[in-house]
């Protein structure tokens, strides 16, 4: 029943990786709620401790448990990731479908706007948005959503264009069904796999960008336990050489991002078997 990892084929190994990734994300999610907020309070007796059994990620200069801080930070990241990914998917579906069905002029305009948002330096644009919205969670979500929809919109446009020429669509529209009926009953189900795959693949970008923006000081306020805040504080203490302050929060962030990548690839194989064939 169980094969050695070495004897598995590439697909099986990827599936295993995706399952592990899912489990990891779930564990982080659960931990972020179960760890008591008490661990976030300063505790003079356990300042600056390296990783140990009771504090696997060590403690910082105020005696706060780094594991607790990291988990709470990742929870924030996940939240921002979910909301921003959903918003960018919604924007891209509306613009992608609109571009494909509303005629040449609309298509040209939307394609131009898409090019504009693809070409823009994303991090800098996010900084601009956050700056204008005065930072905080609202700025981050708007900034991240606005910069992540463009590639998906292109994909959806192409998919819908392909669908438009399909026979059953022609029949449906000749029966006089409304545009919205067709969109809801034929277009959305058809592009659903792409939407799910892209939702999952936007996610890692969203959380990494959120952390970067916060790190620079444009995102979450310094009182929030966000990964960007933790790392930016750790930077101030870096010359003391306390590696655990820098290593674990960033490493976990990369791990979470990679987990979503791995799940999204698995989703790609399951939902779009033809194009995923190697």
């Amino acid at each position: 029943m169980f094969k050695k990892l070495k004897n598995m084929n590439a697909r099986e190994r990827m599936l295993i990786a995706a399952i592990f990734s899912g489990a990891l994300l779930l564990a982080i999610f659960v931990l972020s709620f179960t760890i008591s907020d008490g661990n976030l309070r300063a505790n003079a007796r356990i300042m600056d401790q390296g990783p140990s059994f009771s504090h696997p990620f060590g403690t910082d200069w105020l005696g706060r448990d780094m594991l607790a801080r990291t988990m709470k930070g990742l929870r924030l990241s996940l939240m921002v990731g979910v909301v921003a990914s959903i918003i960018s998917v919604i924007i891209s579906v509306i613009l992608g479908v609109g571009s494909a069905v509303l005629g040449k002029t609309v298509d040209n305009v939307i394609s131009w706007v898409t090019d504009l948002f693809i070409g823009m330096p994303h991090l800098i644009f996010m900084m601009l948005v956050c700056f204008m919205m005065g930072g905080g969670v609202k700025g981050i979500i708007v900034g991240v959503s606005l910069t992540h929809w463009s590639l998906l919109a292109r994909v959806i446009r192409a998919e819908v264009l392909q669908l438009k020429n399909a026979e059953y669509m022609q029949i449906s529209s000749s029966f006089g069904k409304s545009l919205w009926f067709i969109a809801w009953h034929h277009v959305i189900p058809y592009i659903m796999p792409q939407i799910i795959i892209r939702f999952l693949s936007v996610f890692p970008h969203a959380i990494v960008h959120e952390a970067a923006i916060t790190f620079l000081g444009f995102g979450f306020s310094p009182q929030t336990p966000a990964i960007g805040v933790i790392l930016s504080e750790a930077m101030a203490h870096i010359s003391t050489g306390k590696w655990w302050l820098v290593f674990f929060p960033g490493f976990l962030l990369v791990l979470v991002a990679k987990s979503f990548d791995s799940i999204s690839e698995q989703a790609h194989i399951l939902l779009e078997p033809v194009s995923a064939n190697e």
Partner: peptide
């Protein structure tokens, strides 16, 4: 070759 899902 892969035939659907994980089988080869």
């Amino acid at each position: 070759q892969y035939i659907g899902g994980l089988k080869r």
